[in-house]
Amino acid sequence: MEWVETTGRTIDEAKDAALDQLGVDEQEAEFEILEEPKAGLFGLVRREARVRARVRPTRPRPKVDRRDRKRKGPERRPGSERRGGGSRSGRGGDAEPTDGGAPVSAPEESTKDAVPDGGAPPVQRKQEPARRKVSAQREGEPMTDDVVDVATQADLTVEFLEGLLAAFGLEADIQRNQVEEDVVEIDVAGNDLGLLIGPKGNTYTAVQELARTYVQRKATGRHHGKVRLDIGGYRQRRREALARFAHQVADDVLSSGVQKALEPMSPADRKVVHDTINEIDGVSTLSEGQEPNRRVVIVPSA
């Protein structure tokens, strides 16, 4: 099965998280809402929304792609072979026009699949998507149900960055550091990397987002752990500046006894603030607001 399960403050947020993981557009996914969110007083007590999502299994993939992916995609790890995929070796998948043809037929099929019109023989309706699903996985990426470990994600990230640097015509040194058991940081160091950081780190953020998209599309599944990216020391400098800033605000809160809300920040930046503040006695943090306007509030501890 290739369902992913995610949570969020709202159904939409949970859906977004699921789409992030699946790496597809909303129209290509189907959702099941497992739990509605429950808002508490002042947004403090709440239950998160929980959804389940998967890529609609009806669309056969273009043949070209399969071949290409094998050639220059990340090499398949033995562990990601499909269980019970006996049929896999038996078929010359690449050469055969399998699974009923071109992607052109997709819309029609998905409609048919979605509308229980009762016109088509039920048996066929049931079986077709299942068969396709198997073939898509067989030819494509590792199974969604597999855990994609952090080492694999790091490999893919490095692969993506190497290609990007080559396209830029830049030379850089890519290093990976295992900073925690399930956290790998990838550092890109070299000259002229300012281009890849950009004003206010815009390009850095975009590169990071595209790297994540790449990893998610090459290896669907439950992504375990986290890959962080640093380019030219930007992330490090940004973290240090944020931590200094958080310290200053914490001092204010401590001396005044009045809580302070910070300006909205990205999740990564918020984490830096949370981590910094939680090491300081007498203050703690909470988050409020919706992405992308979610912000940290620094409050005096009771």
């Binding site: 557009d25 129209q27 669309r59 281009l195 953020t205 975009a206």
Partner: peptide, 28 residues
């Protein structure tokens, strides 16, 4: 190719926007 536009655009155009940002940097 057919069916890939959604992947390139991404939800709320985020992927497309990221691509534009990086490509503009390359254009420098």
């Amino acid at each position: 190719g057919d069916g890939d536009m959604g992947r390139v655009i991404g939800k709320r155009g985020r992927v497309a926007q990221a691509i534009r940002t990086v490509v503009r940097a390359a254009a420098v």
